Simulated assay, not measured.
Amino acid sequence: MTDGELDTVGKASRLLVHLGTVPEGATLSELSRATGFPMSSAHRLLASLRRQDFVTFDAESKRYSLGLRLFQLGAAVSSARGFTGIALPVMKQLSETTGEATLMSVRDGHHQLYIHHVEARHNVGVKGETGKLGPLHCTSMGKVLIAFADYDTREELIENVELKPFTPRTIVDRATFRHEIGRVRAQGFAVADEEHETGIRAIGVPVLGPLGTVVAALSVPSPAYRTTLAAAMQFLPPLREAAERLTVLLPHP
């Protein structure tokens, strides 16, 4: 089908499909070149998609990215096809083992998107917010989502993700951040020691796809007053076991 034969829905779909191949997003001119649409047409379609939350726009970088409405639709399909039914039992078992909360996230551009959580058995625990965006650079899940991405994506994130200071412990130096991601990749897990929130420690591991790149991240967060770093390391074996189970059980494209 030629561009001239595409209807409005077909053109919008082509824009969305292309955005799905560029996790860092794309400018209007890049989208125009990639799809073959005039910039005026592409801009009009993108404006409509933004109004429906299918697309987001970063005013600083001038880049368009896929929006949360697509995640919501994808989550509904995923749940219907068993993703939630597979992930949550594994996460619940992990929380039973550790006594702490279990969180799961995926990468959404330069952020992570929390997709599942299981609460801790304790009265005081870390609560996840499904559907909320969070930072990559200062969380255990965010670090593994960067460290186990494909090489090009990993390099782009290391160089360009915002190193916003959330606490005095947040890594804000680019060279130090690069070293941290290399260490995470070498050891196979990440620790966030009060880097995102004061009083919260977390350990996270990647859930890998068939090609060895990350498809999701799992973490066990806990209050720092209850869990020392040494105690947090005791969560690593069951975390890895859960991630390995999900690698086998989760459907892959």
Rank of each mutant, 00 (worst) to 15 (best):
residue 171 I to K: 03
residue 17 V to S: 14
residue 20 G to H: 10
residue 135 P to Q: 07
residue 47 A to P: 00
residue 238 P to H: 05
residue 120 A to L: 04
residue 242 A to L: 07
residue 119 E to M: 11
residue 75 A to M: 12
residue 211 L to M: 09
residue 246 L to C: 06
residue 128 G to P: 10
residue 51 R to T: 12
residue 107 R to C: 04
residue 241 E to L: 08
residue 154 R to E: 13
residue 153 T to E: 14
residue 89 P to I: 02
residue 143 K to M: 08
residue 10 G to K: 10
residue 165 P to L: 08
residue 199 G to T: 14
residue 222 S to A: 15
residue 85 G to K: 11
residue 230 A to F: 07
residue 168 P to L: 11
residue 100 E to I: 02
residue 143 K to F: 00
residue 249 L to A: 15
residue 186 A to T: 06
residue 149 A to S: 15
residue 28 L to T: 10
residue 72 Q to F: 05
residue 58 D to V: 06
residue 224 A to Q: 11
residue 205 V to K: 00
residue 118 V to H: 06
residue 41 S to R: 15
residue 160 N to E: 09
residue 85 G to Q: 11
residue 62 K to L: 09
residue 154 R to T: 10
residue 123 N to T: 14
residue 54 F to R: 06
residue 54 F to S: 06
residue 123 N to H: 13
residue 88 L to R: 15
residue 157 L to T: 07
residue 156 E to A: 08
residue 184 V to K: 01
residue 94 L to M: 08
residue 179 H to G: 00
residue 100 E to Q: 15
residue 121 R to S: 13
residue 176 T to A: 13
residue 8 T to R: 15
residue 119 E to K: 11
residue 236 L to Q: 06
residue 115 I to Q: 00
residue 104 M to I: 09
residue 203 I to Q: 01
residue 210 P to A: 13
residue 253 P to R: 11
residue 248 V to A: 12
residue 13 S to V: 06
residue 65 S to G: 10
residue 202 A to F: 04
residue 118 V to M: 04
residue 33 R to P: 00
residue 36 G to Y: 10
residue 23 P to M: 09
residue 107 R to H: 07
residue 184 V to S: 03
residue 76 A to D: 07
residue 231 A to C: 00
residue 116 H to G: 04
residue 171 I to N: 01
residue 127 K to G: 05
residue 250 L to Q: 04
residue 168 P to W: 12
residue 127 K to A: 14
residue 100 E to W: 07
residue 73 L to T: 09
residue 148 F to E: 02
residue 28 L to F: 07
residue 154 R to L: 09
residue 138 C to F: 02
residue 153 T to N: 07
residue 74 G to L: 11
residue 50 R to C: 14
residue 35 T to G: 08
residue 202 A to W: 03
residue 147 A to N: 03
residue 230 A to K: 14
residue 90 V to R: 05
residue 56 T to K: 02
residue 28 L to H: 08
residue 107 R to V: 07
residue 134 G to T: 03
residue 176 T to L: 10
residue 176 T to I: 04
residue 11 K to M: 14
residue 132 K to W: 07
residue 152 D to R: 12
residue 33 R to I: 12
residue 89 P to R: 05
residue 71 F to K: 01
residue 2 T to M: 11
residue 17 V to K: 13
residue 71 F to G: 00
residue 109 G to S: 12
residue 162 E to K: 13
residue 131 G to L: 11
residue 135 P to V: 13
residue 187 Q to G: 03
residue 149 A to Q: 01
residue 238 P to W: 00
residue 235 F to C: 10
residue 74 G to N: 11
residue 83 F to Y: 14
residue 205 V to C: 01
residue 244 E to I: 03
residue 206 P to L: 09
residue 179 H to E: 14
residue 174 R to L: 06
residue 161 V to W: 00
residue 126 V to P: 01
residue 210 P to F: 05
residue 109 G to H: 02
residue 44 R to P: 00
residue 5 E to S: 14
residue 30 E to H: 01
residue 51 R to K: 15
residue 65 S to N: 06
residue 173 D to C: 04
residue 41 S to P: 00
residue 236 L to C: 07
